[in-house]
Design a binder for these strands. Sequence first.
DNA 1: CCTACCGATCGGTAGG
DNA 2: CCTACCGATCGGTAGG
Lengths: 216, 216
Amino acid sequence: MEVRDQILRQATRLMAARGYEGTSLSAVADAVGVKKPSVLYHFPSKAELRRAVLDQLLSRWNDVLPRLLMASARTGLDKFDAVVGELLDFFAQDADRARLLVRELLDRPEDMQDTLQRQVRPWVDVVASYIRKGQETGQIRADVDPEAYTIQVAVTALAGIATSAAGGVVLGDDERRSPLDRGRAELVRLLRASLFTPGYLEHQSMKESPVLRGAE
Amino acid sequence: MEVRDQILRQATRLMAARGYEGTSLSAVADAVGVKKPSVLYHFPSKAELRRAVLDQLLSRWNDVLPRLLMASARTGLDKFDAVVGELLDFFAQDADRARLLVRELLDRPEDMQDTLQRQVRPWVDVVASYIRKGQETGQIRADVDPEAYTIQVAVTALAGIATSAAGGVVLGDDERRSPLDRGRAELVRLLRASLFTPGYLEHQSMKESPVLRGAE
DNA sequence: CCTACCGATCGGTAGG
DNA sequence: CCTACCGATCGGTAGG
């Protein structure tokens, strides 16, 4: 089992960096320290290896993200910033998987439709229902499209991480903050300012966010 | 010259859909209707073909985008929506090139750093200076980071188009609007609400946008 | 998990 | 712009 996990790890890393077509089974085998036929013993074909890598990615995110969001939603701090911050940190630390998912969306859009429908649609609905609660109590702007907003957050976070290796350099002349921090801070500001009503932002200063507490 | 242009067109289309490694010179030749050595007559290597495709992409965008932004900025309509709308339409109609650029950012992040620094950095500075003017007159929020906001708009627009073939399906059950229109409308709302000051948005209803007129 | 091997396809060249 | 060809590498198999 040790070798199988190593194959998955190295395949994820290599396919994230060079793409599926750009990653040979020999390259995966070399990275693990075995020969090519051993890779094909654990995964009967290259296509099956791709599927296993993607399955592991989605099951990991479906496992970790809910806990992470729940946990940060319970802290006493500014909850919106906490949740969005945790989300961005998670993607940033898991940059290889973020890149790999973007590649899959580009390589096989049709095949990914079913997968997204089953794996991420339920979570979009959960977040959207929180947004609707906030709209009923007047804390969230009435003109927010709950589902579209949620997807926008996910796509933006994903894209920001996936392209950060090259794109961060355009923001290059700030001495105090790294380009990544600067882009991240602006993204959090952008998402917050476009979600909450002006009155709510001014008077509450975002110290408490009933959007997330509403669920408890 | 006819064949050379056809090679560039088909290479752009194929590399956008399948990536550089997933696109063979034979596949490009077949799509054009010639044999592989003819492709290598016009472009001495596959790497040179890639470079030509990317060069054409960037020179086209550097040529078309400025005109497009200037033109839409002069109309009497809501200028912010016009400019952002034109930008999104342009990327949507040029989806192959948007996908290809995202792939290049993933495949060769280091090589793309120089290219971005030279080709897009100047435009980021131009847009950022307009935002600063809007901040001085109080129409744009003081806490907006001009450069980071501009890059965020570009990355988000690019990522939205590049992943729309697969991602649009998650927004699937609205009968009146297509998922793409819905995502697009929410993106425009999000960018607008996070840019302008609440007072300016309420009183002016965005009928005039001095942000862009400031340059005339 | 390995050695040895398979046909197919890759990018690229010679030569016209 | 073509035919003919090159060595290298690809995903995958046989057999142990």
